[in-house]
């Protein structure tokens, strides 16, 4: 996946057929993990802080549901133009942010399920379960698409 052009508040990307399949698969199956805990403070332990934390968790659960709904329009045919070498995906600023949030939810969610490993460059200790391998692969895929979305040098 690479940035072809950015102009007028729109980003146009080129994806190989395999990349397009994987990205659409990620969007179709989102979310992959249960919502993680969200702490609002590391120092406050009073009632007000607990209430704020409850509200934060409710708000994030609601936001996640919204993201799940917003993933559907990202899959719409009119966003994906087939070309001789793959697909062109066009995103406005809002759609780009939604896609980034979905991808990072996948990445962080898998990291949490894997036990929040400190060193992500190290492979999981053998024998890795199929779930561990899948989690690692999902994290890497999400990172790959995040990096491509945030590329700021157009190639066209």
């Amino acid at each position: 996946m690479r940035l072809l052009a950015q102009a007028g508040g729109k980003w146009r990307y080129h994806l190989l057929p395999g990349e397009a399949d994987i990205l659409r698969g990620l969007l179709e199956k989102f979310p992959f993990t249960a919502p993680g805990a969200a702490a609002i403070s590391r120092t406050e332990v009073n009632l007000e802080a607990r209430e704020r934390e409850t509200w934060l968790q409710e708000s994030m659960a609601e936001h996640r549901q919204q993201l799940q709904q917003l993933a559907v329009p990202l899959l719409a045919q009119d966003r994906w133009r087939q070309t001789a070498t793959g697909y062109q995906l066009t995103l406005d600023a809002e759609a780009r942010e939604i896609l980034l949030q979905i991808l990072n939810d996948i990445r962080v969610g898998c990291w949490q399920v894997l036990g929040e490993p400190e060193d992500l460059d190290l492979p999981p200790a053998p024998p890795a379960s199929p779930a561990e391998v899948a989690g690692r692969n999902l994290m890497d895929l999400a990172a790959y698409f995040e990096m491509a979305l945030l590329e700021d040098r157009a190639t066209e």
């Binding site: 590391r42 120092t43 994030m60 990072n104 939810d105």
Partner: peptide, 19 residues
């Protein structure tokens, strides 16, 4: 501060608000 923390959490950054 609450607004900013919520926005940062939407992007899955680990953000808190401290007195």
């Amino acid at each position: 501060a609450e607004f900013y923390v919520h926005e940062l959490h939407k992007y899955k950054l680990h953000a808190t608000m401290e007195p």
